[in-house]
Simulated assay, not measured.
Amino acid sequence: MDKEDWVLKILASDKNINFTSRANPYASMADRPGYVITLSSIRRNETSPLVRHKTFNYGDSILAKRQARAEGIDEPIFCNMQGQLTEGAVSNLFFIKNGWLYAPPVEAGLLPGIIRSYLCQCYDVIEKPLYPEDIRTFDECFLTNSLMGLMPVRRFGTVVFPVSPETQTAALFRRYEADKHLPFPLSIRRAGEKPGRPCPSR
């Protein structure tokens, strides 16, 4: 069996270590149709010392993901106790506006994932508190995690975003695909690139 697109997960504690493998669920989504996402009724507790770390505590995310799937939603998005946008059940959240990348700050209560770190290193991501009413002010939206890479969002609640090969999200994904086999973290930006712009030419 070809396991080129399989995922190895290592779970480690002070007394145990466990290895699991499975097919990458995003490997067959070559055309990247775009996700439908919505706000979850469950809140992230930004004051928890655990919220910024990868732990075995997936309870809230599992419950929110199951509820979302039952409603035909690809990914639930959490707000924190102050009503600020944070992250998805298995993803980090990004927006694009006028050629700039925006993301909720880590202090809002989120896990800073690997692809989020890649983007923050390669581009001048504007990290600021974001609220549900801000969603409609952005041009594009996408999610990230280390299995999906970058996934465009075509609808966030009632707000519709463009999804096509001509979007800046698509250009970012192409650049990530070219970079993903390089050593991480990347030591420098590409020579001559203007920092702060989210992608090369479309």
Score class of each variant (00 low, 15 high):
residue 84 Q to T: 10
residue 133 E to W: 06
residue 122 C to N: 06
residue 182 L to Q: 15
residue 167 T to V: 05
residue 70 A to N: 06
residue 173 F to G: 00
residue 15 K to A: 13
residue 44 R to L: 02
residue 34 G to L: 01
residue 200 P to D: 09
residue 163 V to F: 03
residue 13 S to E: 08
residue 189 R to Y: 08
residue 21 S to I: 14
residue 22 R to C: 12
residue 151 M to W: 11
residue 8 L to C: 14
residue 181 H to Q: 13
residue 145 N to C: 10
residue 30 A to R: 11
residue 65 K to P: 00
residue 131 Y to K: 15
residue 120 C to G: 09
residue 159 V to G: 04
residue 80 N to K: 11
residue 110 L to R: 01
residue 28 S to W: 10
residue 108 A to V: 01
residue 183 P to A: 12
residue 163 V to G: 02
residue 140 E to G: 03
residue 90 V to R: 03
residue 8 L to H: 13
residue 52 R to E: 12
residue 48 S to M: 12
residue 168 Q to W: 04
residue 191 A to I: 10
residue 25 P to H: 14
residue 178 A to N: 11
residue 139 D to R: 06
residue 59 G to M: 14
residue 4 E to Q: 10
residue 159 V to D: 06
residue 96 I to K: 03
residue 39 L to G: 03
residue 78 F to M: 08
residue 154 R to I: 07
residue 41 S to N: 14
residue 184 F to Y: 14
residue 120 C to W: 02
residue 70 A to Y: 03
residue 172 L to W: 02
residue 134 D to P: 01
residue 58 Y to M: 11
residue 66 R to H: 09
residue 190 R to L: 11
residue 108 A to P: 00
residue 125 V to R: 03
residue 169 T to K: 02
residue 98 N to Y: 09
residue 104 P to T: 07
residue 49 P to H: 10
residue 9 K to P: 00
residue 142 F to L: 08
residue 160 V to Y: 11
residue 53 H to Y: 15
residue 124 D to W: 03
residue 11 L to A: 15
residue 50 L to T: 15
residue 129 P to A: 10
residue 14 D to G: 08
residue 202 R to Y: 09
residue 129 P to Q: 10
residue 149 G to Y: 07
residue 82 Q to L: 15
residue 65 K to L: 08
residue 187 S to K: 15
residue 109 G to E: 00
residue 194 K to P: 00
residue 45 N to C: 11
residue 149 G to T: 11
residue 127 E to T: 08
residue 163 V to P: 03
residue 189 R to W: 08
residue 42 I to Y: 04
residue 173 F to P: 01
residue 89 A to M: 07
residue 144 T to P: 06
residue 172 L to Y: 01
residue 67 Q to E: 14
residue 87 E to S: 07
residue 90 V to A: 13
residue 20 T to S: 15
residue 118 Y to P: 02
residue 77 I to T: 06
residue 35 Y to W: 15
residue 73 I to P: 00
residue 19 F to S: 07
residue 89 A to V: 07
residue 40 S to E: 03
residue 183 P to T: 15
residue 83 G to K: 14
residue 176 Y to Q: 03
residue 94 F to H: 02
residue 161 F to W: 06
residue 182 L to T: 10
residue 39 L to Q: 05
residue 177 E to R: 09
residue 135 I to F: 01
residue 140 E to L: 05
residue 174 R to I: 03
residue 56 F to E: 10
residue 160 V to L: 13
residue 140 E to N: 06
residue 147 L to A: 12
residue 176 Y to I: 02
residue 29 M to F: 11
residue 81 M to P: 02
residue 22 R to F: 15
residue 194 K to T: 12
residue 59 G to R: 13
residue 139 D to N: 12
residue 86 T to D: 04
residue 186 L to E: 14
residue 116 R to F: 08
residue 189 R to H: 12
residue 34 G to F: 01
residue 133 E to I: 05
residue 69 R to I: 02
residue 152 P to F: 05
residue 170 A to M: 04
residue 108 A to N: 00
residue 141 C to H: 04
residue 36 V to H: 06
residue 93 L to F: 08
residue 183 P to Q: 12
residue 58 Y to G: 07
residue 81 M to F: 09
residue 68 A to W: 01
residue 20 T to M: 12
residue 178 A to R: 13
residue 137 T to Y: 05
residue 71 E to H: 07
residue 55 T to L: 07
residue 187 S to V: 13
